[in-house]
Design a protein around this nucleic acid. Structure first.
Lengths: 297, 297
DNA sequence: CAATAAGTTCAAAATATTTGAACAATAAAC
DNA sequence: GTTTATTGTTCAAATATTTTGAACTTATTG
C-alpha cells in the first residue's frame, strides 16, 4: 500500500505556512509555483481530504490542513533525527554530539577538550548538559546524551551501556570560618555534623528525587541549583556539607572555607563516563580516547 | 534541502526485515527485486551509510540499518496515524478533545461516557483535567479545554461561550460523629460554624485564590488537594465544611459523617457545561448530546 | 553436478515531478 | 475606474525518478 503522505509534501506544507503563500514557498524550495500546486493537489487526492480553501487570492489551511501541518512537522523532525542517528550507528562522524556532565564536576575540564576537538573537526555541533546523579542512565538510553560523565554513571547490569572510570574525587567537609564546628574537637562525628543544616544541590532536570547519598543532616536542608551556589552558600555560613576538593582549593588557601575531618566517611569517590554500546560514532570514540588519558588534576 | 530518507524507503526496509529477503519483500510490495535493490542503494547513497552487508547470498542489516529500520517503523506508524487524524479532522472529528471537570464533581460519571464514545470512535485522544471553580471560563477561552463541566460554568455576558444546565447539586454541611457541633441546638447559625476550622479544596491548577463560597471560618483553614481528601479529612474530624450530597450519601448512611442544617445558606447549586460557540467539532457535539440526557443520580 | 535462490546490472519503459507559458481571479496602486 | 501586481491554476513539454524485464554472478540445496 502506497503511503498517501510523503515527507516532501510535509515539507511543502511547512514552507507554505512559514512563508505565507504558495508562491513564497516555491521560492523557498527553489521550485515554480505550479510544482507546489501539483504537490498539494496530489496530497489532497491521495488523502481524499481538502487541505486548503481560497480566501480571495490566498490559500488558507483548513482544519484538516492544520492537523496535517502540525503533526507533520513532528514527523519531519523525527526523520531528520533518524538520519543523524543512522549515521551515528554507522560509525562515521556524527553531525551532532551531546554530552551530559554531572553537576558535581565543574565544566572547566571539558572546554579544552572541545577546543582540541574543534581543531580536528570544526563542523560538529556539540551540546553540553548539566545532569544530576541518577539521570545519567536514562539520558543515554533515551538518546538525549551520547556521553555521560560523572559519579553514578556506573551502568546497571544488563543495560547496553559501556562504562569506564576516569578519575577519583576527594570530598572535603567544609564550613565557613567562625562556624561553631571549627571549635569542636577533631575528628568530627556523624552526630555532630548532622545537628547542622546541610547545603544540597537540587536536581535541576526532570524533577527527580535527588540522590541524597551524602546528606546525613536531620535538619531541613537548604537546596540550591548548582555546586557553585552550594559553595557560595557554605562560604556565607548558611550551612555545611561535603564539596569536591578540586572545586575549593583556592578557597581553602584563602581561608574562606575551613576543611574539617569527619570520622567514618569515605573521602574519595570515582568519576566515570558511560555511553551506549551500539554507538560507534567517531566523535564519541574521540572523546572516549581523550578522556581516558585526561589528567583532571 | 531534500530529505535523504523517504517513507517509501522505510516501507521497503520494513518489508525486507519482515519477509527475510529482497525477493520476498519485492513480492510483498508488488515490485520486482531490482526495484528493491534500487531503493536500498539510493538510500545508502543519500545517507552515505551502509545499511546491508552480504552473508552468502543473503543481505543482512548492519547496525546502522537496524537503527534506521526500528526508528523508521515508529515514523511509518506516526505517518499512518497522521493520515487518519487528518481524515478525521476533515470529517469534523477533532483529533484531540480536552474536558475540564469541576473538582466538586466526582469523575465517575464521565468514564462510562468515554467508554461509550470509544465504541463509536476509538482513535480520538481525550484528556481530562480537574479544575477548581472560576477557572472554567478561562479554560475555554484560552483553548485549554473544549468542554467544561461544573458549577461556575455559567458564561459572563458577551463571552462567546455556550452554556447548558445539566444538574442540580445539593450541599450538605457535614461534621464527624462526636464533633461538638452535633450537640448544639439546630439549625446552626453562621456564628456557630465560623468558630471551627473549615476544610477547603486547594486550587490544583494555576495557583488561583480559591472561590471561598461556603467558607465562613474565622480560623485558619485546612486545604487539601481534592474533594476526596476533603471528605476524608472531615470524616477524621479535622474540620468541617459543605460537601455535595451525592458524594457522601453512603457515609451519611453509615454514620461516618453527620449532616447538620445551617440557617441562611443556599443548599442547592446548578451544575452546567460550557463550550466555545465557534467550536463545531463532532466530538464536542457527541459529548454535549450525551450529557444533555445523562442522569447524574 | 544440476537446479534453485538471492541479489545485481543495465537498457528500455513507465511514472512522477518540474518547468514555462498562458490564463483567471483578486488585491493594491494610481 | 483603470492599470498593475500578485496569487494560484491549467496544461503541454521537458526532466527526473522509479520500475520492469532480461541477463548475469554468486551461493545454497538436493
Amino acid at each position: 500500500m502506497k503511503y498517501p503522505i510523503t515527507l516532501d509534501a510535509l515539507e511543502v506544507l511547512d514552507a507554505i505556512d512559514r512563508k505565507g503563500s504558495f508562491a513564497a514557498a516555491a521560492n523557498e524550495l527553489f521550485r515554480v509555483p505550479s510544482a507546489i500546486s501539483y504537490t498539494v493537489q496530489k496530497l489532497e487526492q491521495d488523502l481524499n481530504v481538502v487541505l486548503f480553501r481560497k480566501e480571495g487570492r490566498k490559500a488558507v489551511l483548513t482544519q484538516a490542513g492544520k492537523v496535517l501541518l502540525e503533526q507533520g512537522r513532528d514527523i519531519l523532525e523525527a526523520t531528520e533525527r533518524l538520519a543523524i542517528a543512522t549515521k551515528k550507528a554507522h560509525g562515521g562522524w556524527e553531525p551532532v554530539f551531546n554530552i551530559a556532565i554531572d553537576s558535581i564536576l565543574s565544566f572547566d575540564f571539558i572546554y579544552p577538550l572541545i577546543a582540541r576537538f574543534y581543531e580536528v573537526m570544526p563542523d560538529i555541533e556539540i551540546n553540553i548538559y548539566e545532569e544530576v546523579l541518577g539521570g545519567a542512565q536514562e539520558a543515554i538510553t533515551s538518546n538525549r546524551a551520547d556521553l555521560v560523565i560523572g559519579t553514578g554513571a556506573e551502568p546497571m547490569p544488563g543495560q547496553a551501556v559501556k562504562y569506564q572510570q576516569i578519575q577519583r574525587i576527594e570530598w572535603i567537609f567544609a564550613v565557613a570560618p567562625g562556624h561553631e564546628l571549627t571549635k569542636a574537637s577533631l575528628p568530627l562525628s556523624r552526630q555532630q555534623i548532622e545537628q547542622h543544616r546541610f547545603i544540597v544541590v537540587r536536581d535541576s532536570s526532570r524533577n527527580q528525587a535527588p540522590r541524597s547519598q551524602r546528606v546525613f543532616s536531620k535538619r531541613p536542608v537548604l537546596s540550591v541549583p548548582s555546586v557553585t551556589e552550594k559553595i557560595q552558600a557554605q562560604c556565607l555560613g548558611l550551612g555545611v556539607g561535603f564539596i569536591p576538593a578540586h572545586r575549593i582549593r583556592d578557597l581553602l588557601e584563602q581561608g574562606r572555607l575551613i576543611a574539617l575531618p569527619v570520622e567514618n566517611t569515605a573521602p574519595v569517590e570515582i568519576i566515570g563516563m558511560a555511553w551506549k554500546t551500539t554507538n560507534n560514532g567517531k566523535v564519541l570514540g574521540w572523546f572516549i580516547e581523550q578522556l581516558s588519558r585526561h589528567d583532571f588534576a
